[in-house]
Design a protein around this nucleic acid. Structure first.
Ligand SMILES: [Zn+2]
Ligand SMILES: [Zn+2]
Ligand SMILES: [Zn+2]
Ligand SMILES: [Zn+2]
Lengths: 160, 160
DNA sequence: CGGGGTTCTGTTACTATATAACTTCCTGGG
DNA sequence: CCCAGGAAGTTATATAGTAACAGAACCCCG
């Protein structure tokens, strides 16, 4: 199997959930957007916009940068994917489709393994709280936070 | 006065401190590197590499992208400046020159005002601790962390 | 003094990432 | 039918970052 974050069946379930979420929000998960979302979800690792574009071209030969960037913008707005700033790359939201924060963006943090490139999404309340407190301590009204830790994942640490 | 982070006198003091720090570390703060550091320090806000390049060209007409990127790499390694990932821009280290973490990189967080663009550097131990704990909870060996909160600074909040 | 290494800078060319601006297509409402 | 709005196509361009090699400056050693 070529899928990364799950089997074909799991992928389908996630896509259906995304579909449902968009319907609820009154926005359209068009074929293009669905294709891009599928490409992001089936990757093992965060993919850059141009890597996605290359893959997309096999299904949609005329695709150009705006094609993929527009789809990505939509998916980001719907909270279906996140951007990893450090890598200029995109990854499916680990929590999308299956619970509480089902809709829209949520506070999250990334743990990026410098060895295998895998990126783990967590959503730690203590981190969020510490940040909010630190910000308010200097009178700063905190909005969205980018938190990306580089290091070594458990798997890679176990090997070496 | 055109300086951002301080008067000309303050700038000179910071540059001297940088000089001293580099001497201690056994590396050279050359004329070019010093010029780039001065440009970063005198800016009100984080500056992109090409904005720095434009300014640098007035002093050094032949300057090209590698000129400024190499200087920035050096300054980053010495912990004299930081990169703001969200903005692809560079800013002087707020703590450089005047104390404990005088040398090399240190854990820090940025609060980026979406209104005025000002970027505040903090170094909150609770944030660092929460992150370290969250990481270790999933067996992740944490290294450098990018933490950048977008929001509204106290000044802008006071106005509106 | 004359190599010979190292470090720093100059220079050219290129790759990668992202957006602007305008057009075309489609769909649903009047 | 006509139009408004959203989505996608298309072309061009802006912005960010790097590779690769050449030249200069410096220092160390013999
Ligand atoms: Zn998420
Ligand atoms: Zn790993
Ligand atoms: Zn700092
Ligand atoms: Zn502000």
């Amino acid at each position: 199997m070529a899928a990364g974050q799950g089997s074909a069946a799991v992928m389908e379930r996630r896509l259906s959930a995304a579909e449902a979420q968009c319907a609820r929000a009154g926005v359209q998960l068009t074929e293009l957007r669905r294709q891009v979302l599928a490409l992001v979800l089936e990757a093992e690792q965060p993919l850059g916009a141009y890597a996605l574009l290359d893959r997309l071209k096999t299904q949609r030969p005329g695709a150009a940068p705006p094609t993929v960037y527009r789809a990505l913008d939509f998916l980001l707005e719907q909270g279906l994917i996140h951007k990893v700033e450090r890598l200029n790359a995109f990854v499916g939201c680990a929590g999308a489709g299956h619970d509480h924060h089902a809709g829209h963006q949520h506070a999250h943090q990334f743990l990026i393994c410098r060895q295998c490139g895998q990126t783990i999404e967590i959503s730690d309340p203590m981190v969020a709280r510490a940040l909010a407190e630190a910000a308010s301590r200097v009178g700063f009204q905190a909005g969205h936070a980018v938190v990306e830790v580089e290091g070594r994942c458990a798997t890679c640490a176990a090997v070496a």
